[in-house]
Design a protein around this nucleic acid. Sequence first.
DNA 1: CTTCTTGTTACTGA
DNA 2: ATCAGTAACAAGAA
Length: 285
Amino acid sequence: MPELPEVETIRCDLLEKILNTKIVQVDVVLDKIVKNKSSAFKKVIKNNQFTDISRRGKLLIFHLKDGNFLLTHLRMTGQLIYRHQNQLIAGGHSEKKSDLDVPNKYSHVIFTFQNGGQLFYNDLRQFGYLNIVNKKELDQVIAKFGTELIDDNFTLPQFRKILKGRKRNIKAFLLDQNMLAGIGNIYADEILFASCVKPTRTIDQLTKKEVELIFKNIKSILKLAVKHRGTTFNNYVDANGNKGGFIKLLKVYNRGDQQCLNCKTTLQKIKVAGRGTCFCPQCQK
DNA sequence: CTTCTTGTTACTGA
DNA sequence: ATCAGTAACAAGAA
């Protein structure tokens, strides 16, 4: 599940690889992945260039030289993998051959650059999408997102302001992209464990200290995860096709029925906000 | 065979 | 306005 740290890792990887190089060909293997009409999509992309890549929450924004923007959301199993010309398909040291072996049966859109490099949009479950929009449409899409979380503009007073008057449970809030942009199921569980707050607690019950802790942990955990190039739980890989290293640092996510790393209590798995949720009944109050 | 999983949107109902 | 719950989407794992 690509969340903010994973999407940010891919963004930084691609920045070094695909800017200001002419796109000579684009293949749309599976039409439904592209929101635009396939013919219109190809017309805009062909002979165009990416001049920058930005990110809003989990959404990647490729800036095109002609003033349009290519939006990419990976949803659950989307991948963006770049291969430069003549790059050998690595094998042997990879556990999952399909991660590195591109194109494969999940490669639904393929960009080919003038220098021979190729960018593959892979998606096993086909929930992600590519969509070309103009500046006005981009602004409309971006406006709906909540606060950016690894930005210096995200401050404790601002966090308090967003929480004010709300009554839902804290996990549902953390996952709400219209409130905070970029947290998914993995980091929501990790942030709440680090903050010693049970995922079912409602916002109006949180103490001042707990709010402070949650704020601090949102920043520190997301930044640490970016540093470790994200979490590969099942499907995620970076733009080189490599796994993220944060999985070694997960303390609760998907560890239901295992022992808490702090107190050895058996972790519990419950459903909160429609999501599988792991927490320590001893450490999280 | 069935059931579960996951991010997001859309919808219903409180 | 806010929020909870659920279906839908696809395909693989168990």
